[in-house]
Amino acid sequence: MPDSDPSRLLAQAGPRRGRPPLERWQPPLSGDIDIRIDRDGRWWHEGRPIEREALVQLFAGILRREADGGHYLVTPIEKWRITVEDAPLLAGPPERLDGPAGPRLRFTTSVGDVFDAGPQYPIEVEYRGDEPRPYLHVHHGLRARLTRAAFVELAGLAEPASLGGREVLGVYSDGAFFVLGPAGEGGEGGN
């Protein structure tokens, strides 16, 4: 069986200087590696939490989600499948920036990456029963799940709109409108 040592994967990817070009790296699947990201965004290796934040940031820098829905750590010569329980990243409350083109909502992820919600990085809210699951689409097919505090803050910024004959609440960012949920039901974000 090939060596699936996480530190070797990071050495192959090289030092982190911005985002690596994962879209250009197309190695064959090397197999599965015992790395798991739990629903709370904590990283685990062989059943133990990865405590070093710098290591988590480096791994997050070589992580992508592919069309099959799987999450992979990718280097120029290897690709290892990992387990992600929900979304691999979390995003905290947005910073609202006002500019000539209107408002922009800036989010910082659990690994320190910054994204402005908009056409390139859309906000999407899925509902599982009555429970909203808000996400920010980020780089390399990944999603960051918005924390409860982030969603409550978004709900406070929500404006009513009519889309396709239905009344919704949503937010504007970078010229785009993102639906948070149906209008008139209250409780967006929950307590």
Rank of each mutant, 00 (worst) to 15 (best):
M1G: 15
M1P: 06
D3S: 14
S4P: 12
P6G: 13
A13G: 04
G14V: 05
G14D: 10
R16Y: 06
R19L: 10
L22Y: 05
E23L: 06
E23R: 10
P27R: 01
G31P: 06
D32T: 12
I33S: 08
I37Y: 00
R39N: 13
R42Q: 14
W43M: 01
G47P: 04
P49A: 13
I50L: 15
E51T: 14
E51H: 13
R52F: 12
R52W: 11
V56H: 03
Q57K: 15
A60D: 13
A60M: 14
G61V: 01
L63K: 01
L63Y: 02
R64H: 11
E66A: 10
A67I: 10
D68A: 06
G70D: 08
G70Q: 12
P76N: 02
E78V: 05
R81S: 06
I82C: 03
L90A: 02
G92F: 08
P93A: 15
R96C: 09
P100F: 14
G102N: 11
G102Y: 06
R104Q: 12
L105W: 00
L105C: 00
L105V: 00
F107K: 03
T108P: 01
T109A: 07
G118A: 06
P122T: 12
I123K: 04
E124K: 14
E126D: 11
Y127S: 07
D130W: 13
E131D: 15
P132V: 04
P132L: 03
L136G: 05
H137G: 08
V138R: 01
H139N: 08
A144V: 04
A144M: 01
R145W: 05
T147E: 07
T147D: 10
A149S: 13
L157F: 07
A158N: 09
P160T: 03
L163P: 07
G164L: 12
G164W: 07
V168C: 06
L169W: 06
V171P: 00
G181I: 03
E188C: 08
